[in-house]
Computed example of a mutant assay.
Amino acid sequence: MTHRRLTAAELPEWLAAHPDALLLDARDSARHAQGHLPGAMRLDGHNHDALLREEPRSRPVLVYCYSGNSSQAWARLFAQAGFSEVADLAGGWVTWQLTAADRR
């Protein structure tokens, strides 16, 4: 299985099309506390096993991190575990924030 890399421009449409998606923020807890996508939960080495075991494989998954590097590895893990639709945010939260002005 593979995952899809979304650009910041593609993310709003993807989120609208997948309102039940599992949104996973792979940044550290301090960055997550400063701001995150609505409904996103922190993804770390402590909760990923439970998510992989308990979440339905049909639930779409979006993973993002600070700059788009570690989210690729996490997305690959979820795709390899059999989740049918997995995406990560290319450029991560940094790119999402840089394009925020364009979205307003």
Results as ranks from 00 to 15, higher is better:
10 E>T: 04
32 H>R: 14
102 D>M: 15
69 N>W: 11
5 R>G: 10
77 L>N: 06
92 G>H: 00
66 Y>C: 04
86 V>E: 07
59 R>V: 00
48 H>W: 15
78 F>M: 03
44 D>H: 15
7 T>N: 02
19 P>N: 04
93 W>V: 08
77 L>Y: 08
67 S>C: 04
59 R>M: 06
16 A>V: 03
97 Q>F: 07
2 T>R: 15
51 L>P: 08
58 S>T: 12
103 R>E: 05
40 A>W: 02
8 A>C: 07
91 G>Y: 04
76 R>S: 12
61 V>G: 13
56 P>C: 03
35 G>Q: 02
34 Q>A: 13
104 R>F: 00
47 N>V: 06
75 A>Q: 06
96 W>S: 01
83 F>L: 09
67 S>W: 03
5 R>N: 13
64 Y>S: 06
28 D>H: 07
92 G>Q: 08
21 A>N: 04
8 A>N: 02
58 S>M: 03
87 A>I: 04
55 E>T: 15
68 G>F: 12
34 Q>W: 13
53 R>M: 06
60 P>F: 06
4 R>T: 14
52 L>C: 02
13 E>T: 10
62 L>M: 05
95 T>S: 10
78 F>L: 14
46 H>M: 08
4 R>C: 02
12 P>R: 02
100 A>Y: 07
45 G>S: 13
90 A>C: 05
83 F>Q: 04
63 V>R: 11
82 G>C: 03
93 W>H: 07
62 L>F: 02
41 M>F: 05
9 A>P: 08
31 R>S: 10
81 A>K: 04
96 W>T: 06
63 V>K: 07
94 V>K: 07
91 G>T: 09
99 T>D: 05
1 M>T: 10
33 A>N: 09
42 R>H: 01
76 R>V: 01
101 A>Y: 01
30 A>F: 08
7 T>Y: 10
50 A>S: 06
74 W>P: 10
9 A>Y: 05
92 G>F: 01
43 L>Y: 12
24 L>C: 13
59 R>C: 01
21 A>H: 03
59 R>T: 04
42 R>V: 10
51 L>G: 01
64 Y>Q: 12
11 L>M: 15
39 G>P: 10
7 T>L: 04
12 P>S: 05
22 L>Y: 03
29 S>G: 08
55 E>G: 00
77 L>V: 13
76 R>P: 00
8 A>K: 10
88 D>L: 01
19 P>Y: 07
74 W>M: 08
81 A>Q: 11
3 H>R: 06
37 L>N: 12
